[in-house]
């Protein structure tokens, strides 16, 4: 049953991905002729006409799109107009750096958020709870670019405690199977990751902490927890075995939807911290109307999103036996 479900979901995702490419294709082409971005500062009329033809923008839109989809089905995502390299290759090359950021952000927004949320719930009403919740409130109300620049000026430039900007690859050698380099880089990589990672993750960290707290409060007041307590189970056991499990459900749901959200933070953080990831690539590609690169990244992200949510639904079903996959 599980397999059938997964296959059906994957088929659905094909529709989603076609929709996503069509949407981005139309949007970018509605913007008018991208040719002007690929001619020199003092271009002549003739150069503009020639360039338009070289880039293929003189063909009717439907032809361009069908051409494109035909290519995608055979694994060809087109060639970047600016870099003259296969578009998907460019995106994949940059993906590890972005994954480092997103995973770090997801990690702090769960690994840190869950314990502090639980602690706040258990200590409800104490100054500890108040402090955590105040911090969480601020974390949710500070624009991320601002936080990033402040971190650079204070921690990076003021204290000289962390590197200001740049990137040391970690996942890239790891994916390439070069464990030695990955290990050797790991210390530096982490140091370079902290400030941009916090910039991306602090909003989610704060929100999740609050979410865990209120979910915990709700669960703790429920009968089966009270029953467990009255049976004389130790408090830790009650919390870990009964309460936590239920409190995790909203968090797991959040993570799936979060991915797209974290990406917005990624575009900003990659710009502030000179992080060579997909966020900046695609931002530049959009402003330069490098349509194949935009398409390739949109397809990749939709795919990751769809996959992640499928995974989460499966985890979800494990967490809550009342939920059945249909």
């Amino acid at each position: 049953m599980m397999t059938a479900y997964i296959i059906r979901r994957l088929l659905q995702s094909v529709i989603v991905i076609i929709g996503v490419t069509l949407l981005s294709f139309l949007t970018l082409h509605l913007a008018g002729d991208p040719t002007y971005l690929y001619v020199s500062e003092r271009a002549s009329e003739q150069e503009i006409i020639d360039t338009r033809q070289k880039l293929g923008f003189d063909r009717p839109l439907p032809v361009q799109y069908i051409d494109y989809i035909g290519g995608v089905l055979t694994g060809d995502f087109g060639t970047s107009l600016r870099a003259r390299q296969p578009a998907m290759e460019l995106v994949m090359e940059r993906l590890p750096a972005t994954l480092e950021l997103t995973l770090f952000a997801m990690a702090i927004s769960t690994v840190i958020a869950i314990p502090i949320g639980i602690l706040a719930a258990i200590n409800r009403g104490t100054p500890f709870d108040g402090g955590i919740m105040l911090f969480a409130m601020f974390g949710q109300s500070i624009p991320s670019f601002w936080l990033g620049i402040m971190l650079i000026l204070s921690v990076g430039l003021g204290l000289r405690a962390l590197p200001i900007s740049g990137h040391v690859p970690l996942l890239e050698p790891l994916f390439a199977g070069d464990f030695q380099t990955a290990f050797a880089n790991s210390g530096d990589a982490l140091r370079y990751l902290i400030m941009p990672g916090i910039t991306v993750g602090v909003f989610s960290l704060s929100r999740n902490a609050r979410l865990v707290r209120s979910a915990m409060l709700e669960v703790l007041s429920q009968e089966y927890v009270t029953t467990a307590r009255s049976k004389g189970l130790r408090e830790q056991v009650v919390i870990v075995r009964h309460a936590l499990r239920n409190a995790l459900i909203p968090i797991v749901t959040m993570i799936g939807l979060e991915f797209g959200f974290l990406l917005s933070g990624v575009v900003v953080a990659e710009t502030v911290f000179s992080w060579p990831g997909v966020g900046r690539l695609v931002f530049n590609a959009i402003t330069q109307r490098d349509i194949p690169v935009v398409q390739a990244s949109v397809v990749l992200f939709s795919f990751l999103f769809v996959g992640l949510n499928l995974l989460i639904d499966i985890i979800y079903a494990q967490l809550d036996p009342r939920i059945r996959l249909r």
Partner: peptide, 13 residues
């Protein structure tokens, strides 16, 4: 489709 399309990319576009 909307959910799978990263919001920020759509916005920027």
């Amino acid at each position: 489709i909307q959910l799978a399309f990263p919001f920020i990319l759509l916005t920027i576009m």
